[in-house]
Design a protein around this nucleic acid. Structure first.
Length: 1083
RNA sequence: GCCGCCGUGGCGGAACUGGUAUACGCGACGGACUUAAAAUCCGUUGGCCGCAAGGCCGUGUCGGUUCGAUUCCGACCGGCGGCACCA
C-alpha cells in the first residue's frame, strides 16, 4: 500500500512510510499503551532487513528457497504477482481486480518440505491457541491420505500417476483426466487431436482463476486421443484434459470415478463417458432404513429398501406399501401400483443380490404413517423404520412405545443421494435421476474379486493387493540373496514391495527356508511352495546369490526372461577374504556350487533372454573386478555401473535409494502406493516491485545462483527516481543497469543481481526475535537474550492472520530453530498462547471501511471523551474475542463513571489537604466488597474478561460512595481504600489514575506499586441467602449461617410459611441442600 | 457444497465445573434541582393477568436426560466466519 500510494502521489515510499509510522506511533501512544519503544524495529530499514536477507541466504543454502518458472497470480492493475493468500475470491485483495495468470520466474520457499509440513501440522496440537485458529491452519495445510496409482499408457512405455483418496473405487475409474498444464500432455496427444488440445491448453492459461474455479460453470475438456490401462480390470480407458483438475494439487492427474464423485459425474454426463457403479450403499442395521423420495413415482415404488440381515447374510427387499400412498401425495400423483412383480424382481436379481427375500406390503403397514412430504418442497421425508421385526419375520404389530421412538426427519434434497436405498439397480441408476454421484461408503460391486467386501476395508487392502485382485499371467521374480543377510533386511523387502505393486509375484526365500543361499537349496523351497519358474520369470541374484542363480539355471535348464546379477561375487577370486568375513558359511557347498568346472557358460547364456549386471564402484564388499569376470563369460550381458556413495552408504545391502533397479523389470501393469497430499502451496517469496527487501542472490552464468556473501549484507535498495511497475512482470530494479550488473562472488566473472524483491511477509514474520535484541549488529539476536524471552508467552492479534502470518512465522521459527539461530531451549514453536481480539465493527454492524462510511476515528473519540474512556469502553463492550459493533452513545456511561471517580478523588484530596483525617469506622461489609473486587478484577484480567472486571469496579464504586452523592462532605473512604481502588483501575484508566495518584502526594508512579491481594479473611461471610426450590421452582428465600449443616438448613426451610404453603400439607418426597447454593424439595 | 462458531430484554452484554436468568452499561419512562433547557442526582424498566398480595409464561424451535437445563444430549430453524473443482 505504501508503494501504491507513493506511485500515485509521486513521493518516495520511504517518506510516506516514515510519515505513516510517525502517525501510527502517535495514535498508539495517545491510547496509553505501555510499549517499550527502545525495541522498535522497522522492517524496511536496512539495519533490520539485513537479517531478513540473512535468513533468506540460509534458506537458500539449505535448499529451502528455490527458483521456479511457474504460473503465478497476476494482478493486472497492481502489475504484480500475488501470493495465493492475497487472492480473495479470485480477486486481488488490495484493489479488487480479477486476477489472471502469468508465467514468471519466481522465488519460492519450500514450506511444504517434508521436514516441515508435518511439524507445522502436529505442532498445533500442543499449543494454547483458539481451536478455530488451529482448525483453520489444519484446513489450510489440508493433509489428505490416499494412494498414488500408476496407470500404464496403452501405446507408450509411460505411466500417468494419479492421486486418489478413494482407491477402493479403482474399478469404477472409467477415464483419466489430466490438467492442461500436465507435462505428459504433449507426449500422449495423438496427431488428430493435437490441434484441439493445443487450443484448449491456450484457453486454459488465459482463463483467470475466477473463471476456472467458478463452480456454476459447465465442465470443459478435450480428449487427447490416448488411452491408459486401468490396473484393476485391465480395461482401456480414455485420457482427457480438463481444467477442473488442478495442476498444483497431487500429481495434476486424476482417475475419474463418475459414479462416486460429483465432479467426475458432471464431466462424464456432459461428454457421455461411461459410468460404472462400484460402491453400493448399504444399511447394515434397520434403524437407518431410508427412503428416497426424489425418484419419479413409478420408480419410487419399485424398490425402496434393501437391508442385510447380519444373521444369515440374506438381503431383505422392502417394497413400497400401497397403503402408504393414501397418506401423502407428491407432485399430485397418487400411486396405484401393487407389490413387487416379476419384472422388478428380475431387475433386482440382475444387480447381483443372491439371497433375496421379499417382504410383503402387509408387514410394512406399520411404517406408513411415518412417511410424509415436508411442507417445504425441497425436503423429503425419511422413515426411520422398525425393520427389526421384519428381519425376524415377526407378524405381531409394533407396540405404541416402539412407534413413539420413530420419528420423521427431513433432509435437504442434496442429501437425499446419500440415502439411496437401491443397490446396483442399474436400471434405475441409468434411467432415472441418479442426480449425482454417491460418495459414501458401502459394499463393493463390479469390482472383481472384491465384490461384497466392505468398501472401507477394501480401501485398506487394494493398494497392497492390487496384483492379487487383478493380475493375470503373473510374472514371477525369484530374488536370491548372498551371505550375511544384509540384503534380506534392507533392499530385498523394498524390492519385493515395489514388484508386488506392479503385479509381480516376488519371492524371497528367507534364510531358514534355504539353509544357505549358495547351496541352491531354494530348489526345495520352490517345490515346497509349488512355484513355477518359466519363460516369463526374472531371476535376481545378489552377491553370492549370483553364482547360485547361474547354477540353478544350468542344473534345471529352465528358460527365463531375464537374469539380473546385482553386485555379483566371484567366490573363487576372493575366497580368502570371504572365508574370513563369513566364518559360519558352509564353504564346501559354496565351493561345489561355484566351481568353475561346473559351469557351461554357453548353455547358461542360451537360457535367459537377457543378462543384466548392476554394480556400484563403491561397494565395500564386492570389488569391481568381479564384474569383468562375469562379463568375459557372459558376453551378451548388459553392464550398468553406478557410482557414488549414496547407493551403498549403510551396508552392502542397502539399495533402497537405488530405484534404478526397477527399470530392469518389465512392468505389465502399474503400481500403487500410499501417499499423503497437502493443499498447502509453497510460499511465493518474490514480488516484482521496488519497495521491498532485495533478494540477495547473484545469477552467474558459470556458477548459477550464488548468494550474496554474508559480509556484504545488507544489500540495500538503490535510490531511484522511478519505481513504477514495469508492467512486463519484471521488477523496476531490472532497468537499473548500475545496480543489476555485478561480479560473481565465487568466480569473479560478470554476473547479474536478482531484481525481484521480497514480500511484506518476509520481514514481518520474525520481528519478535529481533525485539529480544533489536540493536545487535553481529547477530540476528544474541542466543542468551532469546533464551531469556522466547517463546512468546502470549501473542495477541487479529484472526485475519490465522493462516498467513501465523503459518509463515511458525515455519521461519522452526527453520531458525533447526539451524541453531533459535536456541534449543526455546522450543520450535514461537507462540505458546494466542488470543484473537474481536473486531470492532461500525455502528451498522458491518466491518468498518471507508467505502461504507462507517469508520470511527479513535482520534476523534479521544478528543471528545479522553483516552481512558475510549480504552475502557472498548474493553467493556463485550468479550475480548468477540466482534461487536461500536456505539458512540454507549461511551457516555463510561465517561460518567470516570467523571465521578475524578470528582470523588478530588474531594478526598482536598479533604486530606485540609488536614481532615476522618476515617470511616471499619465495617466488615465494606472490607468484604473491597476484597471481593480485588479478587474478581484480578481473576478477570488474567482470563481476558475485561468487561466483567470493569463491571465489578462500577459495582464497587457505587456501593461505597454514598448513593452517588459525590460532593457530599462526609469522608466515606479511607485513603488506603481509595488507593487500592486506584490500583485496580490503573490498567484500565492509566491517565486518570496517574493524575489522582500524584494528587494524593505520591512521588513514584502507581505502575510500580505491587498489585493488591485479596485476603481470604475478608472474603468470608457468616450468613448467606439461599433459595428454596419446590418442584424446580423458586418459592422462598432463606438466610442461613454459611456453615450450617444440611439437616439444620432443611429444618429451617420446612419451618417457613411459604414452603409450607407450597407443600400443601404433603410430605416431601425428596429434600436436599446443595451447600451454599440451593435448597431443593420435591413433592 | 464442505468445515467451524454462535442464537439471552428495545440495544451492547452478565450468569464460575447443571443450582435464584437478565449483573454492569446504554436507551426509555417518572421524579428532584432550574424561570427554562443541558448537565447532575434519585427511582422504575422481560412479557401477560391483577387494585393488591400474588400467579402464569419466558434464554431461536421441538423433544430428551435431571429434583433442577441459557448450560448436557438429539433433531430442526436462523445468523456469522473460513474454505471452495484439493480428487
Amino acid at each position: 500500500p505504501a508503494e501504491n500510494f507513493a506511485i500515485k502521489t509521486g513521493t518516495h515510499p520511504a517518506l510516506t512510510t516514515a510519515k505513516n509510522i510517525k502517525n501510527m506511533r502517535k495514535q498508539i501512544q495517545s491510547l496509553g499503551f505501555s510499549y517499550d519503544w527502545d525495541r522498535e524495529v522497522v522492517t524496511s530499514d536496512p539495519k533490520y532487513y539485513k537479517w531478513t536477507q540473512w535468513i533468506f541466504v540460509q534458506l537458500f543454502k539449505h535448499g529451502l528457497a528455490y527458483e521456479a518458472f511457474a504460473p503465478i497470480n497476476w494482478c493486472p492493475s497492481c502489475k504484480t504477482g500475488l501470493a495465493n493468500e492475497e487472492v480473495v475470491n479470485g480477486k486481488c485483495e488490495r484493489c479488487g481486480t480479477v486476477v489472471t495468470k502469468k508465467q514468471i520466474k519466481q522465488w519460492l520457499v519450500k514450506i511444504t518440505d517434508e521436514k516441515y509440513i508435518e511439524r507445522l501440522l502436529h505442532g498445533l496440537d500442543k499449543l494454547d491457541w483458539p481451536e478455530n485458529i488451529k482448525h483453520l491452519q489444519r484446513n489450510w495445510i489440508g493433509r489428505s491420505e490416499g494412494a498414488s496409482v500408476k496407470f500404464k499408457l496403452e501405446k507408450a512405455d509411460e505411466y500417468i500417476e494419479i492421486f486418489t483418496t478413494r482407491p477402493d473405487t479403482l474399478f469404477g475409474a472409467t477415464y483419466i483426466v489430466v490438467s492442461p498444464e500436465h507435462p505428459l500432455v504433449h507426449k500422449i496427444t495423438t496427431p488428430e487431436q493435437r490441434r484441439a488440445v493445443g487450443k484448449y491448453q491456450i484457453e486454459a492459461t488465459r482463463k483467470s482463476d475466477l473463471d476456472r474455479t467458478d463452480l456454476a460453470k459447465e465442465k470443459t475438456g478435450i480428449f487427447t486421443g490416448a488411452y491408459a490401462i486401468n490396473p484393476a480390470n485391465e480395461k482401456k480407458i480414455p485420457i482427457w484434459i480438463a481444467d477442473y483438475v488442478l495442476s498444483t494439487y497431487g500429481t495434476g492427474a486424476i482417475m475419474a470415478v463418475p459414479a462416486h464423485d460429483e465432479r467426475d459425474y458432471a464431466f462424464a454426463k456432459k461428454f457421455k463417458l461411461p459410468i460404472t457403479q462400484v460402491v453400493a450403499p448399504l444399511f447394515e442395521n434397520t434403524t437407518d432404513l431410508k427412503v428416497r423420495m426424489d425418484l419419479p413415482i413409478e420408480t419410487r415404488r419399485l424398490i425402496y429398501g434393501i437391508v442385510r440381515n447380519p444373521k444369515d447374510n440374506t438381503y431383505l427387499c422392502l417394497d413400497w406399501p400401497d397403503q402408504s400412498w393414501g397418506s401423502f401425495v407428491v407432485g399430485g400423483i397418487e400411486d396405484t401400483e401393487g407389490p413387487v412383480d416379476a419384472a422388478e424382481r428380475e431387475i433386482l436379481e440382475e444387480t447381483g443380490f443372491k439371497n433375496l427375500k421379499f417382504v410383503s406390503e402387509v408387514e410394512w403397514q406399520v411404517h406408513t404413517k411415518f412417511f410424509a412430504p415436508h411442507k417445504n418442497e425441497n425436503r423429503y421425508g425419511i422413515a426411520v423404520g422398525v425393520v427389526f421385526d421384519l428381519l425376524d419375520q415377526r407378524q405381531d404389530p409394533v407396540s405404541e412405545e416402539e412407534k413413539k421412538k420413530h420419528t420423521v426427519r427431513w433432509i435437504s434434497k442434496s442429501k437425499v443421494r446419500d440415502f439411496v436405498t437401491h443397490r446396483n439397480a442399474k436400471f434405475i441408476w441409468d434411467n432415472y435421476l441418479h442426480p449425482s454421484a454417491f460418495s459414501g461408503d458401502g459394499v463393493m460391486v463390479n469390482s472383481g474379486k472384491a465384490d461384497g467386501m466392505d468398501s472401507v476395508k477394501f480401501k485398506e487392502v487394494i493398494v497392497d493387493k492390487l496384483d492379487a485382485l487383478t493380475c493375470k499371467d503373473k510374472k514371477t521374480c525369484l530374488i536370491v540373496h548372498g551371505i550375511g543377510g544384509h540384503d534380506q533386511e534392507n533392499w530385498f523387502p523394498w524390492l519385493k514391495k515395489e514388484l508386488v505393486k506392479n503385479c509381480w509375484e516376488a519371492l524371497v526365500p528367507s534364510m531358514p527356508e534355504t539353509d544357505h543361499p549358495s547351496l541352491g537349496l531354494w530348489n526345495d523351497f520352490l517345490k515346497k511352495k509349488s512355484i513355477q519358474i518359466n519363460e516369463q520369470s526374472v531371476l535376481v541374484g545378489h552377491s553370492l546369490g549370483a553364482p547360485a542363480v547361474l547354477n540353478y539355471l544350468q542344473l534345471t535348464g529352465t528358460k527365463v526372461d531375464t537374469v539380473i546379477l546385482v553386485a555379483p561375487t566371484n567366490p573363487l577370486q576372493h575366497w580368502e577374504s570371504l572365508k574370513k568375513d563369513f566364518a559360519q558359511a558352509d564353504w564346501d557347498a559354496v565351493k561345489k556350487m561355484s566351481d568353475e568346472k561346473n559351469f557351461n557358460w554357453k548353455k547358461i547364456q542360451r537360457l535367459a533372454k537377457r543378462f543384466i549386471i548392476i554394480h556400484s564402484d563403491n561397494d565395500p564388499f564386492v570389488p569391481v573386478e568381479s564384474i569383468s569376470f562375469y562379463k568375459e563369460r557372459l558376453p551378451s550381458a548388459e553392464v550398468y555401473l553406478f557410482s557414488g556413495k549414496k547407493h551403498f552408504s549403510k551396508s552392502n545391502g542397502d539399495m533402497t535409494s537405488f530405484p534404478e533397479i526397477l527399470k530392469f523389470f518389465p512392468m505389465q501393469s502399474a503400481g500403487a502406493s500410499r501417499t499423503v497430499n497437502y493443499k498447502l502451496r509453497d510460499w511465493l517469496f518474490s514480488r516484482q516491485r521496488y519497495w521491498g527487501e532485495p533478494i540477495p542472490i547473484i545469477h552467474c552464468e558459470k556458477c548459477g545462483n550464488v548468494p550474496v556473501p554474508e559480509e556484504d549484507l545488507p544489500l540495500e535498495l538503490p535510490k531511484v527516481k522511478k519505481y513504477e511497475p514495469t508492467g512486463t512482470g519484471e521488477s523496476p530494479l531490472a532497468s537499473i543497469d548500475k545496480w543489476v550488473n555485478t561480479k560473481c562472488p565465487q568466480c569473479g566473472n560478470k554476473a547479474k543481481r536478482e531484481t525481484n524483491t521480497m514480500p511484506q511477509w518476509a520481514g514481518s514474520n520474525w520481528y519478535f526475535l529481533r525485539y529480544c535484541d533489536p540493536k545487535n549488529e553481529k547477530l540476528l539476536a544474541d542466543p542468551e537474550k532469546l533464551k531469556q524471552w522466547l517463546p512468546v508467552d502470549l501473542y495477541v492479534g487479529g484472526a485475519e492472520h490465522a493462516v498467513l502470518h501465523l503459518l509463515y512465522a511458525r515455519f521461519m521459527y522452526k527453520f531458525l530453530y533447526d539451524i541453531g539461530t533459535v536456541p534449543k531451549e526455546c522450543g520450535d514453536e514461537p507462540f505458546t498462547k494466542l488470543k484473537n481480539q474481536g473486531l470492532i465493527l461500525g455502528q451498522d454492524n458491518q466491518k468498518m471501511s471507508k467505502s461504507r462510511g462507517n469508520v470511527v476515528n479513535p482520534d476523534d473519540v479521544i478528543k471528545e471523551y479522553g483516552a481512558d474512556a475510549m480504552r475502557m469502553y472498548e474493553m467493556f463492550m463485550g468479550p475480548f474475542e468477540d466482534a461487536k459493533p461500536w456505539n458512540t452513545n454507549g461511551i457516555v456511561g463510561m465517561s460518567r463513571f470516570l467523571e465521578r471517580i475524578w470528582q470523588w478523588g478530588n474531594t478526598i484530596v482536598s479533604l486530606l489537604a485540609k488536614g481532615d483525617q476522618r476515617v470511616l469506622v471499619q465495617n466488615e461489609g465494606r472490607k468484604r466488597i473491597l476484597h471481593q473486587t480485588i479478587q474478581k478484577v484480578t481473576e478477570d484480567i488474567e482470563n481476558f474478561r475485561f468487561n466483567t472486571a470493569i463491571s465489578q469496579l462500577m459495582i464497587y464504586f457505587k456501593e461505597v460512595t454514598v448513593q452517588g452523592k459525590v460532593l457530599a462532605a462526609e469522608f466515606l473512604m479511607t485513603k488506603e481504600e481509595f488507593e487500592i481502588f486506584l490500583k485496580l483501575l490503573s490498567p484500565f484508566a492509566p491517565h486518570l489514575v496517574a493524575e489522582l495518584w500524584e494528587k494524593l502526594g505520591h512521588q513514584d508512579m502507581v505502575d510500580f506499586e505491587p498489585w493488591p491481594v485479596a485476603e481470604a479473611s475478608h472474603l468470608q461471610v457468616s450468613e448467606i441467602s439461599v433459595a428454596v426450590q419446590i418442584n424446580g421452582r423458586v418459592r422462598d428465600q432463606l438466610t442461613v449461617p454459611a456453615e450450617a449443616s444440611e439437616e439444620a438448613v432443611l429444618k429451617l426451610a420446612l419451618a417457613s410459611d411459604k414452603v409450607q404453603k407450597w407443600l400443601g400439607g404433603k410430605k416431601p418426597k425428596m429434600a436436599k441442600y446443595i451447600k451454599g447454593r440451593i435448597i431443593t424439595i420435591a413433592v
